[in-house]
């Protein structure tokens, strides 16, 4: 399998404190990278730096593809859902903005178990249900790399199972996942890497 991403010597400091230094790894197709660390260790900062949202104090992140933005799905702490719009509208617009104009939003809502709630404003849904709307991305996107910050947050056990099943399909098809999670995975990927960042390495 070919290399998707090479990360070299990343350095992150916050308020004069070093969160991590000299952090390097490579990610192949089919890999799952589980980033571990205590609260405030810099996991979210690392993920956001990988997708170019945050600038770090040193190092390089190298995508082995010219149009890297099309190769990527990022999901952070915030769901990215408009509370005023219905679930159906959210899915449709979100897919179109991501560059997938011809998705079937009904099909996607059925997949994540939101059928019957499609015409309620998303603001009236629960946190887990809003999360599910955002997660439809993982079903329509063709991007090989998923960068997910705490993807299981607010999901019930059915939701977690559904998501892990989708992860398995994705990696089997040659996709790669970088994720943080406080929950231990019940699913065992073939190519699992663990990366532990400790808050204080001085």
């Amino acid at each position: 399998m070919s290399t998707l991403l090479t990360v070299k010597q990343l350095v992150s400091q916050r308020a004069g404190r070093t969160l991590f230094a000299d952090l390097s790894f490579t990610l192949q197709h089919g890999d799952v990278l589980h980033i571990e660390g205590v609260n405030g260790a810099g996991k979210s900062t690392l993920l956001r730096a990988l997708v170019g949202l945050v600038q770090l104090q040193g190092g390089t992140v190298e995508y082995h593809h010219d149009d890297w933005r099309t190769q990527l799905v990022f999901m952070g702490h915030k769901a990215g859902i408009k509370a005023e719009l219905t679930a159906l509208e959210n899915v449709t617009l979100q897919a179109r903005l991501d560059g997938y104009a011809d998705v079937d939003p009904w099909q996607l809502l059925a997949t994540v178990g939101l059928l019957g709630l499609e015409d309620l404003p998303a603001g009236q849904l629960s946190a887990g249900q809003q999360r599910r709307i955002a997660l439809t991305r993982l079903w329509y996107s063709a991007a090989p790399l998923w960068v997910l910050d705490e993807p299981f947050t607010a999901l019930d056990s059915d939701g977690i199972a559904l998501l892990q099943q989708r992860f398995a399909e994705h990696t089997a098809a040659g996709g790669a996942i970088i994720m943080t999670s406080h929950q231990s995975l019940t699913w065992q990927p073939d190519q699992l890497q663990r990366l532990r960042i400790s808050g204080d390495d001085e």
């Binding site: 600038q55 104090q57 040193g58 190092g59 390089t60 992140v61 190298e62 593809h65 149009d67 890297w68």
Partner: peptide
């Protein structure tokens, strides 16, 4: 290929 540089001054 795309690189994100985080330079170290």
């Amino acid at each position: 290929m795309w690189r994100w540089l985080h330079p170290y001054a």
